[in-house]
Amino acid sequence: MTNLLELKMVEKHFTKRSILDKTQTIRAVDGVSLTLHKGETLGIVGESGCGKSTLASLILRLEKPTSGQILLGGIDIAQFSEALLRPLRSRIQIVFQDPYSSLNPRFTVRQIVAEPMRVIGKWMPREIDEKVVQLLELVGLSKEHLHRYPHEFSGGQRQRLSIARALINDLEILILDEPTSALDVSVQAQVLNLLQQLQTDLGLSYIFISHNLSVVKYVSDRVAVMYFGKIVELGAVEDVMLQPLHPYTKELIGAVPVIGRPLSEVDLFYQEQKNAAGNSAGCLYYSRCPLAKKHCLEKPVPLLEYAAGHQVACLEMLKYLSNTLE
């Protein structure tokens, strides 16, 4: 498979100053390594605050990484200046979570869709007008909408407009950051079906960020599970969803409400990290892990291969599986 995008030990640290003038380093993204293949959808899941959206900002280079490599087509763009990044912007775009706030309310549909093409500067004005109409028709809108404003559209139509804005020439990778979470369930299905059709027709690769496991399972080929800035499990979506290995992945799946299962049986895992785990060099899931041993706090656990394409960052789980097979 062709690797369109490759992340190598990417980190992003933020410095927070407290009331007592003490500084604290927050590792929003902590040593993430991933690849995105041509034509695939890579899902990224995890609870709120785990670093999913920060990772998207790093891939887009809206944020500059603290360290690591971001290889786009084999070129490391991690430390590129804005002038060097501009020609690459047409290859990777994003659709944001909220279609109500991601569109300029003072712009017409024509201006919204044409703006990225105008900024990149590869098209003549007449070409831009023709391209805008083509893109609107591609996402299920029409040229009659050209002179309307965002407030005149429903949530689903606005998200279609956001998708049209992202579909400029040379686009290879589309990052979808919770693209359906602000929409009604029936509209969610329509937008997801549209995205799958566009992927087939245009040969796009997606990074699909969500906390909705059902949606991720529906659209993704592979899925990465994030916890406190780290990838703790990575594999084909069927393997991760049907045979989760990391205790956190099991807990994440177990927290999804199921019709007919009493609420008392749902694993409720939202709790504060204990200092022992939060201040250690080892596993941050230590305080919540049923398999935790003292040595789990001593050093970071890398992603280790369990089966072809299925990796997990938990030595105790691999030991347990090994003993079970024996």
Score class of each variant (00 low, 15 high):
Ser280Arg: 09
Pro65Arg: 09
Cys289Ile: 08
Ser214Phe: 09
Ala166Cys: 10
Pro125Gln: 09
Ile94Phe: 04
Thr249Lys: 07
Ser322Ile: 07
Ser162Val: 08
Arg160Leu: 09
Lys64Ile: 10
Ala236Tyr: 11
Leu138Lys: 15
Thr324Asn: 13
Ser264Phe: 10
Glu178Cys: 13
Ser142Pro: 03
Ser322Val: 01
Glu144Trp: 13
Lys293Thr: 08
Glu272Lys: 15
Lys319Ser: 14
Leu55Asn: 13
Val185Asp: 04
Thr249Cys: 02
Gly49Tyr: 07
Leu263Arg: 15
Ser162Asn: 12
Ala189Cys: 10
Leu4Val: 05
Phe208Trp: 08
Glu172Arg: 12
Pro262Leu: 10
Gly278Val: 14
Leu72Asn: 05
Tyr306Pro: 00
Gln273Trp: 07
Tyr227Phe: 12
Thr249Trp: 06
Ile44Glu: 04
Leu204Lys: 13
Ser90Pro: 01
Ala276Asn: 13
Ser181Thr: 10
Gly74Arg: 15
Leu36His: 02
Ala56Leu: 07
Val113Glu: 05
Glu47Tyr: 02
Ala307Pro: 05
Thr200Gln: 15
Leu195Val: 04
Gly155Gln: 03
Val312Glu: 06
Lys131Leu: 13
Gln188Leu: 00
Cys296Ser: 01
Arg158Ala: 02
Val132Glu: 04
Ala255Glu: 03
Glu233Asn: 07
Val29Arg: 11
Leu71Asn: 08
Gly39Ser: 03
Gln243Cys: 07
Lys131Pro: 01
